[in-house]
Amino acid sequence: MEAVRWLLAAAGVEFEEIFLETKEQYEKLIKDGVLMFQQVPLVEIDGMKMVQTRAILSYIAGKYNLYGNDLKERALIDMYVEGITDMMQTILMFPFSPPEAKEKNLDSVKERATNRYFPVFEKAFKIRMSNVPTIKKFLQPGSPRKPPPDECYIETVQKILKI
């Protein structure tokens, strides 16, 4: 969901988040047919209940004219998005690693991020993006950015999603 938060911030859109707190909430969404693939995130926008991060991002980017001016710009945006997705998948799964594998997994996450992803994002991209006024505001304390997962969050996610 973090990529969606960032894109909404870039578009200057205020949003409200509702977090699942119980397994029953999650199961109700599945039972009601809201979670097409039985997974979150879920974004309600323009009367739609959207799942799948890539579809959500494409919709929001298109709606707020943030998806490039031509096919070449869209392809470049897609490459960055897919790179971020790959990196985030690696990072987001780390807290759910078994305790005995954490050190090895942490080394792997650091190596991939440092050598594969960070160099791409550091080449002017970070500076340019952090100076966009709506993103600059999003980066300030008190914004709707999600903090890194703590033990309580990890335990809740594991309980709800049966991880």
Score class of each variant (00 low, 15 high):
Val109Arg: 01
Ala3Gly: 08
Lys31Ser: 15
Leu57Met: 08
Ala124Trp: 06
Ala11Arg: 11
Ala61Phe: 13
Glu27Lys: 10
Asp46Ser: 13
Tyr64Asp: 09
Lys126Asp: 11
Ile30Ala: 03
Phe138Pro: 07
Ala61Asp: 13
Glu17Leu: 13
Val132Arg: 00
Lys28Gln: 15
Pro148Lys: 00
Arg5Asn: 05
Lys104His: 13
Glu111Met: 13
Lys23Tyr: 02
Asp86Arg: 13
Asp32Cys: 08
Ser58Gly: 03
Phe125Val: 04
Ile154Lys: 06
Tyr67Arg: 12
Ser97Phe: 06
Ser130Val: 09
Gly33Met: 05
Lys72Asn: 10
Asp32Ile: 08
Pro119Ser: 08
Leu92Tyr: 10
Leu76Pro: 04
Lys159Met: 05
Arg116His: 14
Arg74Trp: 12
Gln52Val: 02
Glu44Ala: 08
Ile135Ser: 00
Asn69Gly: 15
Gly47Asp: 12
Glu14Leu: 09
Leu42Arg: 05
Leu92Ala: 03
Val157Ala: 07
Lys159Ala: 07
Lys49Cys: 03
Phe138Glu: 08
Leu35Gln: 04
Lys110Gln: 12
Ile45Cys: 04
Thr90Phe: 01
Val120Gln: 06
Pro98Ile: 09
Gly142Thr: 10
Tyr26Glu: 06
Val4Pro: 07
Pro98Val: 09
Gly83Thr: 07
Ala55Ser: 05
Ile91Tyr: 01
Gly47Lys: 11
Val81Asn: 14
Ile135Pro: 00
Lys49Asp: 03
Ala101Met: 15
Leu29Gly: 01
Pro99Tyr: 05
Tyr153Ser: 04
Pro133His: 02
Leu139Arg: 13
Ile30Ser: 02
Lys146Ser: 05
Pro147Met: 04
Phe125Ser: 05
Ala11Glu: 10
Gly33Leu: 06
Thr85Arg: 09
Ile160Trp: 01
Leu161Trp: 10
Gly33Lys: 07
Leu7Glu: 08
Val40Tyr: 06
Glu24Arg: 13
Gly62Phe: 03
Tyr67Asn: 15
Val4Ala: 11
Val51Asn: 00
Glu17Met: 15
Lys162Glu: 15
Ala10Leu: 14
Tyr26Cys: 04
Met36Cys: 07
Phe96Glu: 04
Gln38Leu: 04
Gly83Asn: 11
Tyr80Asp: 00
Met129Arg: 01
Glu27Arg: 12
Arg128Met: 05
Ile18Trp: 03
Leu71Gly: 06
Asp107Tyr: 02
Trp6Thr: 11
Arg74Met: 15
Leu76Asn: 06
Asp150Arg: 06
Arg116Ala: 07
